[in-house]
């Protein structure tokens, strides 16, 4: 009986893998469908249910604007209550609601390394002009090892910017 060479088996497997990836590509493209918008309005952070210190609230809001601006996906970025946003035809809105907050200790982090982490969990919703949700995600920002407590808001805003990049 003639034996099948090892090389041909490897080649066949490789070919099958390539074909499978071609077949999978349209489905993946559908999953990462990108939205288009020329402007975004970042709303004030909602913290009705969970008490968030005012410094964290404002730092999160400012960092969100900063990080969304850095994505370069929008021509104009409007703040909460800013006049002019209402006239934008292709506007999306970014809403964030605080779900959880644990204020750690910078001293504890520096002394023990493993304890004293600060974390904030926020539900992020990006909606179109009609109010229909385009993106609905829970995002967590943490400071585990180094940095001051407010750094958690910076890390969270960076995660939100990543979501924006993936979807726009």
């Amino acid at each position: 009986m003639r034996r099948i060479p090892y090389v041909s088996v490897v080649l066949a497997l490789f070919g099958a893998f390539v074909i499978a990836s071609w077949v999978a590509t349209p489905a993946q493209a559908q999953q990462t469908k990108k939205f288009k918008a020329s402007a975004i309005q970042v709303f004030e952070v909602e913290c009705d249910e969970v008490k968030l210190p005012p410094a964290f609230e404002m730092a999160l809001y400012e960092n969100l604007i900063d990080q969304v601006r850095k994505t370069g996906k929008f021509e104009r970025i409007y703040r909460d209550g800013e006049r002019g946003a209402a006239d934008e035809a292709n506007l999306v809105t970014l809403h964030s609601k605080v779900l959880g907050f644990k204020e750690g200790s910078e001293r504890l982090r520096q002394v023990t390394t493993v304890a004293g982490a600060t974390s904030i969990k926020v539900h992020v919703r990006i909606a179109d002009r009609s109010g229909q949700s385009l993106v609905d995600r829970d995002v967590t920002g943490k400071v585990v090892f180094f940095g001051e407590n407010l750094r958690a808001t910076h890390n969270l805003a960076k995660s939100v910017a990543k979501i924006v990049r993936q979807n726009f």
């Binding site: 404002m58 730092a59 809001y61 400012e62 703040r79 909460d80 209550g81 800013e82």
Partner: peptide, 13 residues
Amino acid sequence: KYRDAKGALHGVI
């Protein structure tokens, strides 16, 4: 926490 002339919300720390 303040609003500028355009009504936009700002936070300063």
